[in-house]
Design a protein around this nucleic acid. Sequence first.
DNA 1: ATCTCGATAGTCT
DNA 2: GACTATCGAGATC
Length: 225
Amino acid sequence: MEINRAIEAQPAGGWDTPLPRSFYEPGAVEVARALLNCRIVRPAGADLLIGRISETEAYTQDDASCHAFRGLTPRNAVMFGPGGHAYVYFTYGMHYCVNAVAGPAGRADAVLIRAFEPIAGWETMRERRGMAPLPLAQLAPVRHEREARLTVGGPARLCQALGIDRELNGTDLTIAGPLWIAPPDAAVGHASDPDILATPRIGIRQATDYPWRFTLAGDFYTSRP
DNA sequence: ATCTCGATAGTCT
DNA sequence: GACTATCGAGATC
């Protein structure tokens, strides 16, 4: 297995220390693998929403299913900028999805964040998703079918849980602002290559055979392989 | 567990 | 005018 440069370049740090721009410089496939287990962080008023990224998809500018495949438009403009920014798009008349832009400026790659494990702020996430609060006795997220529906099973669910909409399009993910991505928790660590599952991407009609959807073997917080 | 379908609006041909 | 990197409800097995 080849060494993942994006992971090597990643410094140690807490949830409050965003990954640096250099993390996003490789292409979408490499960054998509490296983002597994990293933490997506979203301040929400008084509390903080944090999730452990558990499912990603890579989109490269050479790939017919990528929004940037047919060139620059107002919608996909942030994909053509430097890596480490959020590309948020609106689709099907009602849903938002978030990507982390990858590659250097001029290379329009992006990584779709499809699922995460709620780590902090799950009460707020449930509220935003329109789900009933859990019983008071439950002090932490439980690995339950109902709980998975919170942030797993489609990329628009996690956007709803985190309150991500078009206003966050273009957000710099390398600074601690309204949305950023931090390294994995030290106790969790980076995904090791042998644990990463690569399967076809979901919901596309072009280039359906590229195995560019990444999950972790045995991870509860991912839709079925 | 797996399916079909409707909602709903922005983007591009 | 067609299509969409979707979700949730409801039907059906």
